[in-house]
Design a protein around this nucleic acid. Structure first.
Lengths: 213, 213
DNA sequence: AAAGCGCTGATTGTATCCAATTGGTTATTT
DNA sequence: AAATAACCAATTGGATACAATCAGCGCTTT
C-alpha cells in the first residue's frame, strides 16, 4: 500500500547517493534511470522532484537533474544548523527513549570504537545519532535533521577517510559523554555534549578545504 | 526562461495557500486545478510535488492532495525550531545588511504599529522579519526558515485575529528592540531579542489551543 | 581569422489515453 | 435490522506520443 512507483525509484536513487554510487555533481538522465529501474519517465520525474525536496537532487528546468553538491560554505552552514537543531531534537527525544534503545546506543558506541573500515563507521555513527532521536515524534524537526544528514553524507565520508587515531579517540570520548548523559536522563548535559561534538566536527572539517575542490 | 509550467502552477497555489484562499485540510483535485489554471494534469502533479517539498501540501498515494494542516504539537515545534534557527540566520545576515535595508526595517516597524487590518499587519510583519535575513547568502538555513514561515502562515493569521492592544504593544516593543540591536550592529543582542520575541509568541500561542480544533 | 548566426541531435516538458486504486452505495444475506 | 460483499463512479497513477527547449558545432559573413 505504501510503495508507489515514484517512491520506490526515489528510494533506490537516495540509497545510491548516500552510499556513494552516485557522486555530487553527477548528471541524472530521466531515460537512463527509467530504463535501469524498469519504470516510465513519469514516475522518474516524480522521484526526482521528491529527491529535490530532500535536497539530494538539483533540478534545472529544460536542462536536467544533478546530484546536489555542497560548497564549503554550505557544508559549514549545515553544521551550524546541526549545532542548533540536534540538541533540541535530542532533548525532545530523550524522555521517550526506552531502556532497550539506550542499551542499543551503548552497544553502538562499542561497535563504533571497534569498527575497522570507513563504511562500517559511517553506518554505525549514523545509526547511533539517529537512534538518539528515535524518541521524538516525527515532525518537521526530525525531517530537517534527517535532510541535513542526507545532504552531508558524502562529505562525512570524505572527511572520515582522512581521520587519524587521535581525532577518532576524541570522537569516541564525545560519544561516551553523550551516552552517559542520555543514560542519566540528563537533557541539559546531553544537549551540551552533543552541541560540542557537532561543533568540534565543524571546526575540524573547516580545516580541510581540499574536500570541496 | 525561469518559469516552467509546474513552477507557475505551484506559485499560484502557494500564493492562494498563504493568503488564505485555500485553507488547511482543503482537498486539491488535479483536474480542477488544471482546468482553472489552463494547464494539463501533468504539470499540476509536478506542482503538487513541489509544494509537498515546501511542506505546504500533503500527498497521499492513490488518494489525493490536501493543503497541509498543523497540529498544536507541530505548531509548537515550528516555533521551537524558529527560536533556534532565526537568531542564527539573523547573525549571519546582520553584517551584510545595507544601510538602505536597515532604514527600510525602521520604516516597517512604524508601518506595523500604524497598521489597521490584520492582512496588512501580516504582510508587513512578514516583510520585516524576512528583510532582517536579506543579508544572508541564500542556503539551506534560509530555506528552512522560509518553509517554517510558509507552513505556519495560516496559524499566524488566526492568532493575529484574536490579538488585543496589550499584546500588540508587546510585539511592537520587541520589534523596536530587534531593530535597535540591528542598527547598532550588535549581533549578540539582536539574537537574544529575536529569540525572546519568538519565544513569547510561542508561549502566548500555546494558550490558544482552540485554534487547532 | 574571429564573431555571429542557424542548424541538428539529444533531452526535457506537455498532452492524451488507458490502467489501477479508492470510497461510497446498493443489494443481498443472516 | 445490521452486517457484509460486490459493484460502480470518480480520481489518481503510469505509459506512450508529440512538442518545446537547449547545447554544441559548423558555416557563413565581415
Amino acid at each position: 500500500m505504501a510503495s508507489t512507483s515514484p517512491i520506490r525509484v526515489a528510494e533506490v536513487l537516495r540509497e545510491e547517493i548516500l552510499n556513494g554510487t552516485l557522486l555530487p555533481g553527477e548528471r541524472l538522465r530521466q531515460e537512463d534511470i527509467a530504463a535501469r529501474l524498469g519504470a516510465s519517465r513519469q514516475p522518474v520525474r516524480d522521484a526526482l522532484r521528491l529527491l529535490e525536496g530532500d535536497g539530494l537532487v538539483t533540478l534545472v528546468a529544460n536542462s536536467g537533474a544533478w546530484v546536489s553538491k555542497l560548497s564549503e560554505r554550505e557544508c559549514d552552514e549545515a553544521y551550524l544548523v546541526r549545532e542548533r537543531l540536534e540538541p533540541l531534537l535530542l532533548s525532545q527525544s530523550l524522555p521517550n527513549l526506552t531502556a532497550d534503545q539506550v542499551a542499543r546506543l551503548a552497544h553502538l558506541v562499542d561497535e563504533i570504537e571497534a569498527s575497522g573500515d570507513i563504511e562500517t563507521f559511517l553506518r554505525l555513527d549514523r545509526e547511533f545519532h539517529l537512534l538518539c532521536y528515535a524518541g521524538a515524534q516525527s515532525g518537521m524537526l526530525s525531517e530537517f535533521v534527517e535532510r541535513i544528514w542526507n545532504t552531508t553524507q558524502h562529505y562525512r565520508r570524505a572527511f572520515a577517510k582522512l581521520s587519524n587515531p587521535a581525532t577518532s579517540e576524541i570522537t569516541h570520548m564525545e560519544h561516551r559523554l553523550i551516552l552517559d548523559a542520555i543514560t542519566r536522563r540528563d537533557s541539559v548535559q546531553a544537549e551540551r555534549a552533543l552541541e560540542g561534538h557537532i561543533r568540534r566536527t565543524r571546526v575540524t572539517l573547516a580545516e580541510h578545504k581540499e574536500l570541496f575542490s
